[in-house]
Amino acid sequence: MLDSINADFTSSFWGLYVAGLVTISLLVCVLILVLNMTSRETGAPQVQAHTWDETLQEYNNPLPKWWLYLFWGTLVFAVVYLAVFPGYGTANDDRGARAEYAKETEKFQQVFDKYAKVDVAALAQQPEAVATGKRLFLTYCIQCHGSNAKGSPGFPDLTDNDWLYGGEADTVKTSILEGRAGVMNAFGAVLSGDEIKDVANYVRSLSGLSADAARVQRGEAVFAANCTVCHGPDGKGAASMGAAFAALGAPNLTDNVWLYGNSEAKIIEGVTRGRNFDNRSLKNAMPAWGEFLGEGKVTLLAAYVHSLSQKK
């Protein structure tokens, strides 16, 4: 035991230092009490020699018994405490706290681990699993997706069955497990301001929103030349071009579901500056949760998220 604590101290002196000071201070307390032991004498109380403020004098009484016994009591307590809990310089004993922590962690890990390989879609049918998933969601996910899972500007609504990366139960699980990095390149340097405004109007028209007819016409050509690679020839998004493209995450632009808002200004901002994932500033990203939560919890979360859009 001495070795383990001394390994943490920079010198073995410190173990002795703590033990020494603790012993000395306890002994000094005992010494003070013993050296001042006295008994009450009968007869008139003894008066101390000094006089203050002309007439003020003090009795010289022994310590009150109740106080004295309490003092002895604290000394006994100190010795017992040092024996039971580590405090004597040499003890690096956590009384099994770390082991208990590890045991508890392991116990709960097992509860979640048994969900790790369960089929997400099947799990979404089990009310108990979905309820557990919901509680996990309320702890880890609401900061971005909201407690009603309806998202906020820049953070997707999970209840509308409109998906950037695909809404199959397993795809949802992958999104949580590994995270997602959105890629929308900045076209500010490629296109002129007018072209960007044209394409913004065209994109609005795809969702049936009001748009300038002349700009829509010009914007269609700009869209065809620059945007179809990711958003698809008809603007229905990467997922519409087949599963291989779904990982691009380019949204369907025809469904009037908007991650960053549908105003002309917001679309122009997105086209000009991009909504690019950046490894350091972490824009337009879904963090990976696999390492932190473990696959069991992620599966439960995926089941809950999947269940949200299945009710409709």
């Binding site: 609401i142 900061q143 407690s147 009603n148 906020s152 820049g154 972490l282």
Partner: peptide, 21 residues
């Protein structure tokens, strides 16, 4: 690394924009 920097930006300017409660 828990949230995106965009989240922090939105959240610091007005927390209610991302966390209603």
């Amino acid at each position: 690394g828990r949230y995106t920097s965009e989240w922090h930006r939105t959240h610091l300017i007005n927390p209610r924009d991302v966390v209603e409660e």
